[in-house]
Every structure is written in C-alpha cells, then in structure tokens.
Design a protein around this nucleic acid. Structure first.
Lengths: 137, 137
DNA sequence: ATTTTTGCGCAAATTTAAGTTGCATCCTTG
DNA sequence: CAAGGATGCAACTTAAATTTGCGCAAAAAT
C-alpha cells in the first residue's frame, strides 16, 4: 500500500473546487506550501494532515492511501494484485493474531503445529471416542 | 478515527521484542528519536513512517490509526461502537479485507470459534481420556 | 548486596526540511 | 493583447525533528 498523498491531495482539492490559494487560506499558510505538498517536495506533519482531511471531508486514510479510485480506472486484476501486496504488508499484523500466521510461517514448535493442524484433534477425539465404545461393548 | 501513532509504535515495537535502541539502529537514527516518537514529543515524516511500518511488519494504517487494541484495555462493546463510527472510506477498506473484520466482529461461525478457543480441545481430550481409563478399569 | 547492564526520558544544541518570499510561466477571458 | 487567476521553482528563513549529553530506574550479573 503506497502512500499517494500528493496525488490524492490534488484530486480531492479539485473535487472540492478549491484553488491552492483557497485551501492554503483555510490552513493559515501560503499557497506555495500547498504547491510543495502536491508536487511532493514536502509533506505536512500529522496534525496538519488531519486538518487537511477535515477540510476536504475525508478521513486521513483516504488522504494518505487514496482508497477512493476514479471509477473505471482500476481493473479487477489490479485490485487482485493490490490485495496480494496488501497481504504482504500485513503479514506481521498476523503474527499477533495467531490464526493467520498459520498460513505463512514454518512450523517451529508444537504450539504452532497445533495451531496449524488443530483439525486433526477432531480425528483424534473421534478415534478415542470410537475405541472407548469398542471397549465398553 | 484518531491518530494513535505514539501508543501504537510502543505496542508494536514491544510485540516485536525490540528495544528503542534496536529499532533506532534499523532506522539509522538515535534511540532518543524513537523515544520522542513514543512520548509524542515529535513524529517522523511519512517516509520514515513507511520504513517503520515495514520494520514492524504492519501497514502504515495500522501504525497510524491502531486498529490493534491493547488486550484487556478495550471492552468488546467499545470495539463494536468504534467499528460503527468508522467512516465510509474505512468501511470500504474493510470490505476488501474481510479477514480483518474478524478481530472486531462477534463470533459468527464455528470455525472462528474454534480458532479462538482451540485450547478448549485439550480439556476435552483430557476428559475423554480420563473417562476412557475409568471405564477400562 | 553491590555492581553492571539495559532501557528509557529530559534538556540543550544542532541540523534537517517545512514553510515563506519573490519571480516566472501558463491558461483563460474580456 | 492585456489582466487576472492558478501554479511551479529558487533562495532564504524558521520551525521542529534529531542528536548529543546526562540522569535515573529496573533488571541482570558478579
């Protein structure tokens, strides 16, 4: 997931029908500062980022990552590959959420093995139950 | 959706088992800089933010907005209402990444339940085994 | 129990880069 | 063509991020 702030800022500002000057006024800064943001020469700090998002009526997420896409411009395949990349980036998030780690990490200890093949327990339980019944007969 | 970078950085870093020093080394900066980020005295620019996210193996979104919650500190009800309050764009994001919803959503099917409480199976197996032995005697 | 190490935060100094000032360019419109 | 609006670029200023240097706990080692 790339940060596409510069592009996104330009798009959203124009969608709102604002000039760099008008946006700058609302932020109490110069229009050149806005220009630099849009050309990627600099980027505002997080607080300003929040203000900008408020003015443009979007969340900071949208402003930074541009989940809003121009209709028709993104193909399904693009979305799929985007999803794959997202998956990569989020790998570690899963480390803290065991269920997902299963898919990625090699099995290094018993617990991970269990987490990965817990369904085997069903078979085990079934077998134990079956044997139990056999003996009871 | 507030920006909770400072807190999030501390949490994720510790989850990774890194000290401020170790994280700083990977970023080629001093440990004091990291300290300031975590105490909110300053915040890195977007590029660094991306690097940090990479090192911690999370997306920048997670780093900034903390979809992760400190265990035990937020009640389930809080999580739900927090989820409800998320803006349109964020909902969108969730739609494209269904698994992430799991963290927030109530348990809706058996598999999720199992993933969450698989350890119960140990108790089950133990009990079954015990009963088996009782009967065999 | 004392020393050493590790991890962290705070204050002052420094450096990086965001922001400003000033100028040039490109459209649009009368 | 002239005038006004909108934007980008270069040099300078200033804000704030980062470093340097110090102190202080808590954990680990002797």
């Amino acid at each position: 997931m790339d940060i596409v702030f510069a592009q996104q800022l330009t798009n959203l500002r124009k969608q709102k029908g604002l000039s760099q000057q008008q946006l700058a006024d609302k932020l109490y800064m110069t229009r050149q500062a806005v220009s630099k943001w849009e050309t990627g020469e600099s980027s505002p700090d997080l607080n300003r980022m929040q203000e900008i998002a408020d003015i443009l009526d979007v969340s900071v997420q949208v402003l930074l990552f541009g989940t809003q896409v121009e209709p028709g411009k993104t193909s399904f395949r693009d979305k799929v590959s985007e999803y794959m990349q997202q998956d990569e980036a989020d790998k570690d998030w899963h480390q803290n959420h065991r269920w997902r780690q299963w898919q990625y990490s090699p099995i290094t200890n018993g617990w991970e093995f269990l987490a990965r093949y817990y369904w085997l327990l069903f078979a085990l339980i079934g077998m134990i139950g079956w044997f139990t019944l056999q003996y009871l007969k």
